[in-house]
Amino acid sequence: MAKRIALVEDDAAIRANYAEAIKRHGYDIVSYASRPEASAAFRVRLPELAIIDIGLGAEPDGGFTLCRELRAASATLPIIFLTARDSDFDIVSGLRLGADDYLTKDISLPHLLARIAALFRRADLAREPQAAEETIDRGNLTLDMKRFLARWRGREVDLTLTEFWMVHAMAKFPGHVKNRDQLMGDAKIVVDDGTITSHIKRIRRKFAAVDPGFDAIDTVYGMGYRWRE
């Protein structure tokens, strides 16, 4: 049975484009133009993944409200914010509300589809018992490449998909400097340097939350970042 994806987006052209692309990849897509419409539908039936714009018509923060409602209804439902807003404040707000990823609208469709696939994989595997492992071990760091889970000293670090891919990009070859463009490519996003810096900052903070002495990410000024083992 095809996975059911909900798309809440107020711009008709984008909505149609995304819907068609997603449908072409074999997913079942339902799209809504406004928050009340989406809310009503979600009360009847929850989708298996939701892609939400933040500004919805007359409601500039309608997406946040919707995210809160969805997260209240299901703790595991993957939620992606797809929005024109790219301020740190919005990103932090969105992720704090329990979104699994926060993407700006200039992301390409293949990148978006890759994320959708990854999130589904993570959700599926989370329900199953530990199956055949596909992990990368780098000292204290363990990356579960199937579930997109990161562990530091055995404790899970709650990373978004983008953050996970960045950590993976760095940790794959410890000691090698990854510049910002490489990180962007690996994380399947197109953002500016400042946003990469904010991402790195957030990743460090999440690791520091499980281990205050965490300092495995090195900043190489003017070049990029590297993972220290």
């Binding site: 984008i14 790219d86 609208k105 469709l109």
Partner: peptide, 18 residues
């Protein structure tokens, strides 16, 4: 401008991707 441009850019990009 960033915000306003992003939506039409997204329209073009998704259309091209499709």
């Amino acid at each position: 401008l960033t915000h306003e441009f992003r939506t039409p850019v997204a329209v073009v990009r998704t259309s091209l991707d499709n």
